[in-house]
């Protein structure tokens, strides 16, 4: 399996419930396609550097998961169709990952720091190969 990270922006006029609905839907896609969710974190409302779909603010959500290429394709298709999602970017963090190494869901702080330390060298390595992935 591969490890991916998707950062996406949810429209600013969504309510708590909308955010929950988006989370459920997105997480449903991940688990429904045999993916494994590692972390799903809402980063709160932030000002955008430029207007996207006439909005100047948005809720950023960072999701970390394991899966295969078809999962990413399906996820991005869903994000494109969903009007609540303004923009997204997907990065591959690692090429071969053992799903056993990761706890399912639950954004624990301890796991967070661990994954950060582990990911950094990987990110650098994959930077060059990423371009085609996310430009799509």
């Amino acid at each position: 399996m591969r490890r991916y990270e998707t950062l996406f922006i949810v429209t600013p006029d969504s309510s708590e419930e909308d955010l929950k609905a988006v989370a459920e839907k997105i997480q449903g896609v991940v688990t429904g396609m045999n993916g494994k969710l590692v972390n799903y974190k809402e980063q709160g409302k932030k000002k955008l550097a430029y207007n996207v779909k006439k909005q100047n603010k948005g809720y950023y959500v960072l999701m970390d998961y394991l899966g295969l290429a078809d999962l990413v394709a399906e996820l991005e298709r869903n994000m494109r169709l969903d009007e609540r999602i303004l923009k997204y970017i997907t990065l591959k963090l690692a090429d071969t990952v053992d799903p056993e190494d990761f706890e399912v869901q639950e954004p624990e702080p301890s796991e967070d720091t661990e994954s950060v330390a582990e990911v950094e060298p990987e990110v650098d390595e994959t930077v060059e190969t990423q371009e085609s992935e996310e430009e799509r």
Binding site: A49, G58, Y88, I89, E134
Partner: peptide, 13 residues
């Protein structure tokens, strides 16, 4: 590359 990614996701102008 990081700046270009940040621009894409509207974190940077």
């Amino acid at each position: 590359t990081a700046i270009k990614k940040a621009r894409h996701i509207a974190l940077m102008p």
